[in-house]
């Protein structure tokens, strides 16, 4: 599903002295079946932006098109289930949403709310627990007996079990160890390659460089830049204004550039960096 924001503004506590702008006249297209990363400082409006896609928040003005579903300030809270089934959302620290007495029941909770039969939901739970890298032996355990990382995986499985077409991830790997982080990110990349749209909020620029095809930079409730990560990381105006930081490979390349190397375009992944260094050292 293509997701289109048209002049979306969202203000918190409208008409009170505490009023604040969450989104300021945002127009944006998130392409179908692409991996889009959304970056920006804490409090810039990233989470506010994505909460509009499944109508957890409604715009103060403007419209959002999710496939053929339109969300406007007048959208009421009825009949949102089809939309929310199609737009799965993994929140920050999603382990806090677990509540059932077994892992299996918790994973089945979402699908059954969306009208899946018990048998199908069970099948889905069995599939997803393996997908997130835990074995079937975890299904009968209580989610509260698991470690933090395992709980995270169960929560992610619970979102994936509804088989959403679009998956929104709000810093899904925050606080995970490097191995766990890579496994989880690879899982999302695989899902995208199987035809899903992935929207990732992150502070990790290496994840952006390694996984995303499109990138959106949010700053002070506005969209500051949209494009391919490679182009955006090479846009000096964003870097000098302290809106964006670079992936490690690009930082490394910048340092090399002071020692007789030259990079017309900063490499953003390790493989790009090594290819470029090889080329310049061997001179071919």
């Amino acid at each position: 599903m293509e997701i289109i924001f048209k002049n979306v503004t969202h203000s918190y506590e409208a008409n009170s002295p505490l009023e604040g702008l969450g989104l300021d006249d945002v127009s944006l297209t998130i392409h179908d079946k692409k991996f889009t990363a959304i970056v920006g400082k804490t409090g810039s409006g990233k989470s506010t932006l994505v909460r509009h896609i499944n109508a957890l928040l409604k715009p103060t003005s403007g419209t959002i098109l999710v496939g053929d579903r339109e969300i406007t300030p007048e959208t009421n809270n009825k009949n949102l289930k089809p939309l929310r089934k199609n737009v799965g959302m993994v929140f920050q620290f999603p382990e806090s949403q677990l509540f059932e007495d077994t892992v299996e029941k918790d994973i089945m909770f979402g699908p059954m709310n969306f009208g899946m039969s018990e048998a199908d939901a069970k099948k889905s739970a069995h599939k997803m627990i393996e997908l997130v890298g835990l074995g079937k032996e975890y299904l009968d355990k209580s989610p509260f007996d698991l470690s933090g990382g395992q709980m995270r995986r169960v929560a992610i499985a619970g979102v994936l079990a509804s088989e959403p077409e679009t998956i929104i991830l709000d810093e899904p790997t925050a606080g995970l160890d490097p191995v766990g982080r890579k496994e989880i990110m690879d899982l999302f990349k695989n899902l995208q390659e199987q035809g899903r749209t992935i929207i990732l909020i992150t502070h990790n620029m290496d994840d952006v460089a390694n996984y995303a095809e499109e990138m959106v930079v949010i700053h002070d409730a506005k969209v500051k830049a949209v494009g391919k990560p490679k182009d955006i990381f090479n846009d000096r105006s964003l870097l000098t204004d302290d809106i964006l930081t670079l992936p490690r490979s690009a930082v490394f390349a910048q340092r090399l550039a002071k020692k007789n190397f030259s990079f017309p375009q900063l490499p953003i992944t390790i493989s790009e960096l090594t290819t470029e260094i090889k080329r310049q050292v061997h001179g071919d």
């Binding site: 809270n77 929140f91 806090s96 949403q97």
Partner: peptide, 19 residues
């Protein structure tokens, strides 16, 4: 804050409060 967050997470998993 915590309640709002958890409610949002469960809404996203298809819970309809007040229905």
């Amino acid at each position: 804050d915590e309640t709002t967050k958890i409610m949002d997470a469960q809404r996203a998993r298809g819970v309809d409060f007040g229905e």
